[in-house]
Amino acid sequence: MSSDANVFQRPAISRRGKSSEDVWFQRALALAGASVLIILAAMLISTTINAWPVFAHSGWSFITSAGWDPGISRTEITGSYGALSFILGTLITSGIALLIAVPLAVGCSLYLTNIARPTIGRPLAYAIDLLAAVPSVVYGLWGLLFFIPIFIRPVLKLIADTLGEVVPFLDGPVVTYNYATAGIVLAIMVLPIITAVTREVMSKTPIAEIQGAYALGSTRWEMIRAIVLPRARPGVIGATMLGLGRALGETVAVAMLIGGSEQMPTTLFQGGQSMAGVIAITFQEASPENIKALLGVGVVLFVITVIVNMVARLVIWATGGRIAGDAAV
């Protein structure tokens, strides 16, 4: 038997450079990656160009004033377009959603990772994930017909009659569909994503530190407060921002539940409209100049979402860097 090297019958080393298959494969993958950027840029550029006449016509008042009175011209901009009430509608409903969903998600995650036995925890975790699989139009219908009129409205009325007497923005009258109702249903919709990330981070708490805390005679709550929560903080912030991204863009359920009014908010219990909502509700009957204005609202929504994501990354980087640095040194 000769040496093993001959088994493959390899030719002498060639000098033709990399194989062309490999080069083409790499190019194909690069194209796949670039396509995302190309689509994103194309979308932003074409919407901005189309919306530009409205931006030029309204100036900063497009985002600083609230009168939304579309004209019917095909060629000019004749109406007045101030999207502030829609911007506020989106921000208020998203804020309410996070205010409810984040504490709930942290509580769920703590329960799942620190308290529940696997026989209870696993099915519950699946159930929370399932909330994400429900189509948003179903959430909208359920909220519209059952959840809000039966359960939520009486509670909101109670709040308006008690807290509302002293706390601004919580006073009545309470209409059936309002900022608060949209925010509450939105909270249920963003709960799964926030819980999933938070739970994942909490399950990574170093067991040695948990045992160290217990060995000093800490109760479960003291251990959680000293070890689990500080370690999970960057993850919770990241999860919150993911949830916020989802809440800002949610369209159908919010449009169904927010009440559909263009007035400026003076209380959380009045009807309003969100950016995504006004686009979805009005574009079908919109005049050509109104379409341009709706595109403008879309551009503003996109910019706000980008800003939120950038702030999220900064926050995670700033707080996460510190905690990870502790562990790394």
């Binding site: 805390a213 060995a215 500080p230």
Partner: peptide, 14 residues
């Protein structure tokens, strides 16, 4: 609280 413990690997808190 009365019977403390030191572990195999040092486990200071962060």
């Amino acid at each position: 609280r009365r019977i403390g413990m030191v572990f195999q690997k040092p486990n200071p808190f962060p």
